[in-house]
Design a protein around this nucleic acid. Structure first.
Length: 880
RNA sequence: GGGCUUGUGGUCUAGCUGGUUAUGACGCGGCCUUUACAAGGCUGAGGUCGGCGGUUCGAACCCGCCCGAGCCCA
């Protein structure tokens, strides 16, 4: 029985333990029907990082969805992934064990990573469980595990066999610090101090001088062309001639191209292989020479002549100084500009021509756009981000990384002819550095030696496979085809994630799974916003405004955090608000206290449905039907805020303030049955939101009935409210208007007492209601302590009505009278109008009755006070 | 610099394809011990809907520009 005060600390921890111990939320493995299976594919968090408030927010929304659909008869698979395959966890391992990954064989080092990550995973698990999320802890995966490595390599091979991957010498974004190619998404911008140099170039034949401005003079030896804008009249005469590079002496063509930015420097620009993205375009468009001056480690090559072997930064200073000696340095000024850097190490990226593996994406943009369109987007507007991302793609997806650890490419090359030899699918996972290729001789040339691929796969190549990992995707060698352990969950019903990762994580996942299975991997995607601090600013360590989940959950119940999280419109950013949590606490308390009252008004044994329900009871149950339908629709549309606020308002106002107050006066089976039915329904409706407190009350009140079959609950409902069925509408006939009016009469009487400074239980002698509240007389009388209630359903109230104004119905008047509306308004305002046979004559127009309403004021001259209750007049007389 | 999103009483928020009285909560003022809850109930005050301009009889809503915030990209 709920008694005393609610103690969330004890209650929440107890249920969290029970849910895990009893495997309450385990996915029923016998599920086979795609219509009953319901799966959520969450992007796995990096376990080496901390759980932050954004995780709390996102996870709660996922959990509300999971619980809602579970109660709606779906077999829910809500798995959890730990992302520990990446540089972050490798660095962590090196730090913790004080080792270098280079000193170990790749597989060996990964074993160490797995060991180190295990404790971090345990910490993550504990915290996720302490939020009471309805995750199936039997269904977890680690992105570094051999099983996932196998899936990653299978994915590589499948795409290779489908002709979606290629290896090519091409300009790639390169980090000279990490000595690896990186993808576009791994770079970020950084404001850095630099210098702008004006350098004197000369035309080869005439010796005429012109100025080139650059921040990177060390690229002079890599210069392969000079560009002038076609609209640049002043310098047009240079086009077609050749320029001589100072210090290095080689001649390059001078070419016109409209990609030149005339506003910067002299408007004449040099093209080097490669300084930036533009250089690559020019290189390709004009078929220029390739002069590579900077090598993979950021040092100068032989192209740089005397500067060979210097680091590019040293070479820059040396070249500037030599230019100055030669008089070719016209100016040098300090500037700050944005530099494209590698997000991991902060070092400026280079563009190098290297041999890399790519996944084709550019050729199927339209198809991938269509794949995105086929998903349901919550909210719909977020699709635009996906759309713009796909339309703006400039590179195929670079998937090779020159790191020594990570998931290896399952590939060897013939030492003689470079023919690619791919691993056998049933041998995966393999590491070419340790394992032998599947053939003894090259199928192409017969050569017997092979060079292993020592690159590893980009971590996104793995992170983008989570739907397949969850569905148990694998290759069946006997059948010669790909299979799934759980085909019923694919495509996955919901993919939740923040709007910050739509462009790469979601995109990569969609296209890879689409290529493997021919199906868009998600039925829907649910985009949550970012969590901001109380001042709507981004949380960041440097600002010191980061909310620590542990500290908050120390102070507030998890259910309060759930209430806060559900206060967001999906897709919008949400500020952390302590008041939001406090409001949650209040609702939890209200639910608890109301449950205590229900318990005392309708104790066990619970009454069966009486033959006839009182009008008020039918009205309440019918109102609950309405709320149930609204709530269900909102949850289906992921309108969490509307769902939450609607249910809260209805419960607090209609059930607690209106119904319960009346029910206190009643002692009949109809009331007892209704209290119990309503209460049981409210618990269920609140269950996805307030997961713990509803479970606690459910167990105190309703599991016995579910267990012994006394109630119409399923046997599973005896285990947990979260396994109970979502309510169906009862469909009772009720007079909605009469009930509404009766509540308005009660409200008016309450206000009357409040205005008169009377206690709410003060008696009232006579109340006359001029409106139809038949069937509710005893309810009004009981709760308001009315001695004599007289209802006049059809009679006119004995009041004088005075016309106080005219209310135009603009929706019809506007279109009908257009520009004359201001005149009509002025006429009414000035009182220059007449009512003739129900028509309004004003400003030369005759308005028909449906175009306006007459505003009236009721005045009562008799004994007692006149109150307004909705449309009805109520007259109150007290015996003073 | 570009794209997307967002800006409503002190704070958070609702507001559908434009219709005139802009929703609710938190906080604030006043009153009320009523069969759970005073962390409750009743009631009141508080808003030029970020700014400017436009379209319209009528704009929180549509259009343009500007400002602030968030995300992604350059």
């Amino acid at each position: 029985m709920p008694s005393g005060e609610y103690d969330p600390d004890a209650v929440e921890a107890r249920w969290q333990r029970r849910w895990v111990d009893d495997e309450t939320f385990a996915y029923p493995e016998e599920t086979a029907d795609p219509d009953t299976a319901f799966a959520i594919d969450t992007p796995p968090p990096t376990v080496s990082g901390n759980l932050h408030w954004g995780h709390v927010y996102g996870s709660i929304l996922q959990d509300v969805v999971a619980r809602f659909h579970r109660m709606n008869g779906r077999d829910v698979l809500y798995p959890f992934g730990y992302d520990d395959n990446g540089i972050a966890s490798e660095r962590l391992t090196e730090r913790e064990l004080d080792v270098r990954h280079q000193d170990f064989e790749r597989r060996e080092f990964q074993r160490k990573c797995r060991e180190v990550c295990r404790e971090y995973e345990a910490d993550f698990t504990e915290k996720m469980q302490a939020m009471g999320l309805s995750i199936d802890w039997n269904n977890t995966y680690r992105t570094i595990s051999p099983e996932v490595q196998r899936v990653s390599q299978l994915s590589f091979i499948d795409l290779y066999e489908k002709g979606r991957e290629y290896r090519e010498q091409a300009p790639a974004i390169w980090c000279p610090e990490c000595e690896t190619a990186i993808s576009q998404v791994e770079t970020e911008d950084d404001e850095q101090d630099s210098h702008f140099h004006d350098i004197e170039f000369a035309v080869a034949d005439s010796g005429e001088g012109f100025t080139i401005s650059t921040t990177r003079p060390e690229l002079l030896p890599a210069c392969v062309a000079v560009f002038v804008h076609p609209d640049d009249d002043e310098n047009q005469h240079l086009v077609g001639q050749e320029a001589t590079i100072p210090l290095f002496g080689h001649d390059v063509p001078i070419i016109a191209d409209d990609r030149v930015d005339m506003e910067t420097g002299s408007g004449i620009v040099m093209c080097c292989t490669f300084g930036d993205q533009n250089d690559i375009e020019w290189y390709q468009a004009h078929d220029l020479d390739l002069r590579v001056a900077i090598d993979e480690s950021g040092h100068m090559t032989d192209v740089a002549g005397p500067y060979e072997g210097m680091h590019s930064s040293e070479a820059r200073e040396a070249i500037v100084s030599d230019l100055e000696d030669e008089g070719a340095l016209l100016d040098r000024r300090a500037i700050t500009h944005t530099v494209n850097v590698h997000e991991r190490c902060g070092v400026g990226v280079e563009f190098l021509v290297t041999e890399q593996w790519y996944v084709k994406v550019l050729d199927k943009r339209e198809e991938y756009l269509q794949a995105g369109r086929e998903m349901d987007w919550f909210p719909e507007k977020m699709f635009t981000r996906y759309e713009h991302w796909v339309e703006g793609l400039q590179w195929d997806w670079l998937i090779s990384r020159q790191r020594s650890s990570g998931i290896p490419f399952p590939v060897w090359y013939c030492a003689d002819c470079d023919h690619e030899v791919i691993a056998e699918k049933d041998a995966l996972p393999v590491d070419p550095l340790s394992d032998d290729p599947p053939v003894d001789a090259c199928p192409e040339c017969g050569h017997g030696e092979f060079v292993p691929e020592d690159d590893v796969l980009d971590t996104w190549a793995t992170s983008s496979l989570t739907p397949l990992i969850n569905a148990g995707w694998d290759y069946d060698a006997d059948a010669g085809e790909f299979t799934m352990d759980r085909p019923e969950i694919y495509p996955i019903d919901v993919r939740p994630q923040g709007h910050d990762i739509i462009s790469f994580w979601l995109f990569h996942t969609v296209i890879k799974c689409y290529e493997h299975t021919g199906e868009v991997p998600f039925e829907s995607t649910m985009i949550n916003g970012m969590v901001l601090d109380e001042n709507r600013e981004k949380m960041s360590k440097s600002k010191g405004n980061v909310v620590d989940p542990d500290a908050v959950l120390e102070e507030y119940p998890v259910d309060a955090a759930r209430f806060w999280a559900a206060g967001s419109a999906i897709g919008d950013d949400l500020p952390y608000q302590e008041k939001g949590l406090r409001a949650g606490e209040k609702l939890i308390r209200k639910l608890w206290n109301a449950s205590k009252l229900v318990e005392s008004l309708a104790p066990e044994p619970y009454p069966a449905e009486p033959d006839e329900l009182a009008e008020l009871d039918r009205w309440l149950l019918a109102e609950i039907d309405r709320e149930l339908e609204r709530l269900t629709e909102h949850l289906e549309n992921r309108e969490f805020s509307k769902a939450r606020d609607g249910l809260r308002t209805f419960f607090w106002g209609t059930f607690c303030d209106d119904y319960l107050e009346i029910a206190k006066q009643r002692e009949d089976d109809s009331a007892r049955y209704t209290l119990r039915t309503a209460h049981r329904r409210f618990l269920k409706l609140f269950a996805p939101l307030l997961a713990h407190v509803t479970e606690e009350i459910w167990h105190a009140e309703y599991v016995d009935g579910a267990a012994d079959g006394a109630s119409d609950e399923t046997p599973a409902a005896a285990e947990s409210i979260h396994l109970a069925d979502w309510p169906e509408p009862l469909g009772l006939e009720a007079d909605h208007d009469a009930g509404e009016l009766a509540m308005a009469v009660v409200g008016a009487l309450r206000k009357f007492k409040s205005d008169q400074q009377l206690p709410l239980n003060a008696p009232i002698d006579v109340v006359e209601v001029y409106g139809d509240v038949r069937g509710f007389e005893d309810d009004v009388t009981g709760v308001m302590h009315v001695g004599d209630l007289r209802v006049h359903p059809d009679a006119e109230a004995p009041v004088e009505t005075v016309t106080t104004g005219i209310d135009l119905d603009y929706a019809t008047v506007g279109p009908a009278y257009g520009g004359d509306v201001p005149d009509i308004e002025a006429g009414i305002e000035a009182g220059e109008y007449e009512l003739v046979d129900g028509e309004l004559h004003v400003a030369g127009h005759e308005l028909s009755p449906e175009e306006f309403t007459v505003e009236t004021d009721r005045q009562y001259q008799g004994e007692g006070d006149l109150l307004e209750a909705g449309d009805a007049a109520v007259i109150v007389r007290t015996g003073d």
